[in-house]
């Protein structure tokens, strides 16, 4: 697993981005999906949090409760047994199916990069285009960032300034899939608040 930069693109379509990448030599690898379900507390003392899944990690589930920064956000990665355990906690935490986000689209491979381009929907209502660019050879952010930034500069120059918080690291710490899902969940939060 590499380091991923997840971004939202405006005034474009998934087909336009795919065409641009295919012209540059990318190959279609297959499809992918990401989903995020908010869990709402029904009692005091319980927090609002999100359960996410990514088709690249089919046996895993990721939970994140948003705080000011990633480091202070309570978070965990689990196997899918946790989905069932959460179901047992439904007296205090209930899945908000109306607030569920899904991203579905295609995955492309361009040399050492995997690019996932998908349409984000909330209950079948399109909310925006999300692109995940993964640099596969390294799972250390400080190592991967120069080349990942160059890729974003080349293909999506308008997004290069909005570098996600989890990619602003100075120490060579290992990157985890939870950080990719955190980026998705932040984008979903912004989309959720935005009127169509």
């Amino acid at each position: 697993m590499g380091v991923s930069w997840v971004l939202e693109l405006f005034d474009t379509s998934t087909v336009t981005i795919e065409t641009k990448l295919i012209v540059a030599g990318a190959e279609l690898v297959g499809g992918y999906t990401v989903d995020s379900t908010p869990y709402k507390p029904s009692e005091q003392g319980i927090s609002h949090f999100y359960l996410l899944h990514h088709s690249q990690f089919p046996q895993s589930a990721f939970s994140i409760a948003h705080q000011d920064t990633y480091k202070c956000s309570p978070r965990a990665s689990h196997d899918r047994g946790f989905d069932l355990i959460l179901h047992k906690l439904n007296v205090g935490l209930q899945a908000d199916t109306a607030g569920k986000f899904e991203v579905a689209g295609n995955e492309l491979k361009l040399q050492d990069f995997r690019i996932r381009i998908g349409l984000a929907t909330q209950n079948t209502i399109a909310k925006g285009v999300i692109v995940e660019v993964e640099y596969s050879p390294s799972s250390v952010v400080t190592q991967a960032m120069p080349v990942l930034t160059e890729f974003i500069e080349h293909f999506f120059p308008d997004s290069v300034e909005s570098k996600p918080e989890v990619l602003k690291k100075t120490a060579p710490e290992p990157y985890s899939a939870l950080e990719t899902l955190y980026q998705y969940s932040l984008l979903f939060s912004v989309m959720r608040k935005r009127a169509n």
């Binding site: 319980i46 409760a65 309570p74 990665s77 689990h78 196997d79 047994g81 047992k88 906690l89 205090g92």
Partner: peptide, 19 residues
């Protein structure tokens, strides 16, 4: 019984989040 393996750098805060 339902078993699930989890990894978290702040598990105690996470379980508090779950109430």
């Amino acid at each position: 019984v339902i078993d699930s393996v989890a990894h978290s750098q702040n598990m105690m805060e996470f379980v508090k989040t779950l109430g």
